[in-house]
Amino acid sequence: MNDLIKPKVVWVVAIVMLFTGIILVQRFFADTRHICARCMVTAEHIERLNHQKTLLAKHEAARARYAAMTRKEPEPLSRLLKDASFEYKLTAEDTRDIDGGWTVRRMRMVCPDAVISNVLAFVLDIGCQGAVIAETAEQAQPNWYLAECDIIASAREAGRGELILVLESLAKED
């Protein structure tokens, strides 16, 4: 068989194969560089996506807490304020829809002339500090929280003034 195969043919095939191999290896290294660069970019993208996920997680956790509540409406604010010792005026403002059937209810409470600390203490006392207080999720219900606060101190008497408080609450109608 060896006598039939001309050495020159074998040499030509060998050299062609070697050059092909060298070229393929070179292309492989070039492609590897490109792919590595792409992987770096993908890694950056994934980092950005994970950051978005982290930001969203906090918001979705908050929504989940509301979704777990059995009662989906707050106590009426007027009922909560019935024992208040200061003069106030409650005005309902526009509700706005947010997500998943939930709406934001806004109530503006204006105390034209009150002891500032009394009003704030009362608002804290009725649970408007922003946290939902409950032993279990089943007992929890949406609460009113202070969204805006404007205090204009009285020039006549220290510690008194006008308070304009905007209280919000989330509610979901079944």
Binding site: H45, R48, L49, Q52, L55, L56, K58, H59, E60, A62, R63, R65, Y66, I98, D99, W102, V104, L120, L124, Q129, G130, A131, V132, P142, N143, Y145, L146, A147, E148, C149, E168, S169, L170
Partner: peptide, 29 residues
């Protein structure tokens, strides 16, 4: 482009869900 699309959507979701987070925020007091 995909990442930007997701970021846009996430921002919109965050904006929609912000009231849920704000309701737990004690910063004003």
């Amino acid at each position: 482009d995909a990442v930007e699309a997701v970021e846009r959507q996430t921002k919109e979701k965050i904006a929609r869900l912000q009231p849920f987070v704000d309701s737990f925020d004690q910063r004003i007091f």
